[in-house]
Design a protein around this nucleic acid. Structure first.
Length: 414
RNA sequence: CGGGAGGUAGUUCAGCCCGGUUAGAAUACCUGGUUUGGGACCAGGGGGUCGCUGGUUCGAAUCCAGUCCUCCCGACCA
């Protein structure tokens, strides 16, 4: 627990008073000095301590294991400087905590969660990630191993998108959580914890958006298709609406979320721009001209292309298009990632790439915290991760020239 | 916590340096009309204690002092 507390102590909000009041001098609402707490409350920055205090009372036997708790909650970390979506003083996250009878089971759990996170970020958010482990200095306070997924934003800065920790027996020892195994031997349990936060919203925005606004991958877009009628007069609208109702039904039958925006308080061009800004993947426009030819204009958000599509095959066309867009958005981001993993073998190369190309730099590191710290001081680049299944190769540390057995990924990060 | 920038209409800002009619623009909003295939056009209209407090002055958005707040950069960090 000591390392954990040490790691988080510097960024906790502390409640010292329990009441506000109107200032008699008229300065508005102020803290009531009469309401000072005798014992201060510390707002959790993460929940390990309360979870393990609880596990202590729940776990006695191997029959009680494994245990998994998952909760969504808000936590507070009093950062010196906040950054919208990426680092807010208070944030909503999901945090899971497990306890296991064996070390291997805990390690497997931590790795499983890393894979679940990677699967979600890649296959739903369409943001490719690099899976890896953190260096000791970048580890979660109190963890023995911190797994992470690192994403790359369009500006070339890295963003940690999720983490999973193998906590060893540290918390079990701190909270005295022991269990009897089948042979009646007492041992401390093995632990993991893992979390993902509203930071992912920031990742989503920065990974895909363009100058016209959000670009949402179809799988997570709350609204996948919007239909905009183009008409003059009620008579035309009525004919268009008849056609659209049929299309809406077909799309809904295919499980596609769709909105028919027949509101008359905004013109078509305004609606086009508005839904693009909101990132709606597909827009269908239908006017008198289209009805006459039995077609609709389909516009996709990711490439801004417009196609004229026969209404008879429209719903299946849209279904395929949404799948294709999901892939395209992912592949585009994947290309950006892969195009920005650059090898550097000399210090000059390292600095040059960092300043002019950005992204990840694959370079040798002598494995010491001192070198890591020095590089951070000199360039603001940190070791984002040591990729899983990293290739072993002999080389020389980018900074010190000392021997190294593998390359690690450096980047400037959010 | 250190450094920088800024607070003027719902919003984004100009005006401030060099004090002087009724504080402007764009956009948004309201009314009427014409429009509707990429954020419409024409005409008319409403909207501000210029962050707050004090000072200088015949006169302060403008100068001075204090104060509160916001944003950016740095250290810190999911």
């Amino acid at each position: 627990e000591a390392a954990h507390v040490e790691g988080f102590a510097k960024e906790c909000a502390v409640v010292t008073h329990y009441r506000l009041k109107n200032d008699p001098a008229g300065a508005g609402i102020i803290v009531d000095p009469e309401a000072k707490l005798e014992e201060e409350l510390i707002i959790r920055p993460t929940s390990e301590t309360i979870i393990w205090n609880t596990y202590k009372t729940w776990i006695q036997s191997y029959r009680d294991l494994p245990v998994l708790l998952n909760q969504w909650c808000n936590v507070v970390r009093w950062e010196m400087r906040t950054r919208l979506f990426l680092r807010t003083a208070e944030f909503l996250w999901q945090e899971g905590h497990t306890a296991h009878a064996t070390k291997q089971e805990a390690v497997d759990e931590a790795e499983q969660m890393l894979n679940i996170y990677a699967d979600f970020v890649e296959n739903y958010m369409a943001v490719p990630v690099i899976k890896g482990v953190k260096t000791p200095t970048e580890r979660f306070a109190g963890a023995e191993e911190t797994y992470c997924i690192e994403a790359l934003m369009q500006d070339g800065k890295a963003l940690q998108a999720g983490t999973s920790h193998f906590l060893g027996q540290n918390f079990a020892k701190a909270f005295d959580v022991k269990f009897s195994d089948k042979n009646n031997n007492l041992d401390y349990v093995w632990a993991t914890s893992w979390g993902m936060s509203t930071r992912l919203i920031g990742a989503l925005v920065m990974a895909h958006s363009d100058d016209d606004g959000l670009v949402l991958p179809p799988k997570i877009a709350p609204l996948q298709v919007v239909i905009v009628p183009i008409y003059k007069g009620d008579e035309q609208l009525e004919i268009i609406t008849g056609k659209v109702n049929q299309i809406v039904k077909e799309l809904k039958d295919l499980g596609i979320s769709v909105k028919y925006d027949n509101s008359d308080n905004a013109r078509p061009g305004w609606k086009f721009a508005e839904y693009e800004m909101k990132g709606v993947p597909v827009r269908i426009a239908i006017g008198k001209r289209d009805i006459e030819k039995n077609v609709a204009e389909v516009a996709r958000r990711d490439t801004k292309e417009k196609m004229s599509v026969d209404i008879s095959g429209l719903s299946s066309y849209i279904k395929n298009l949404l799948d294709e867009m999901q892939l395209n958005i992912y592949n585009r981001s994947k290309q950006n990632l892969e195009g920005h993993i650059t090898k550097a073998d000399t210090w000059n190369e390292f600095v040059e790439i960092l300043d002019n190309k950005a992204g990840f730099i694959s370079a040798h590191w002598d494995g010491t915290a001192e070198t890591e710290e020095k590089i951070k001081e000199l360039t603001k680049a940190t070791i984002r991760c040591i990729p899983l299944n990293n290739k072993q190769e002999n080389g020389k540390c980018i900074l010190t020239g000392n021997p190294s057995t593998q390359r690690v990924l450096f980047a400037r990060a959010y």
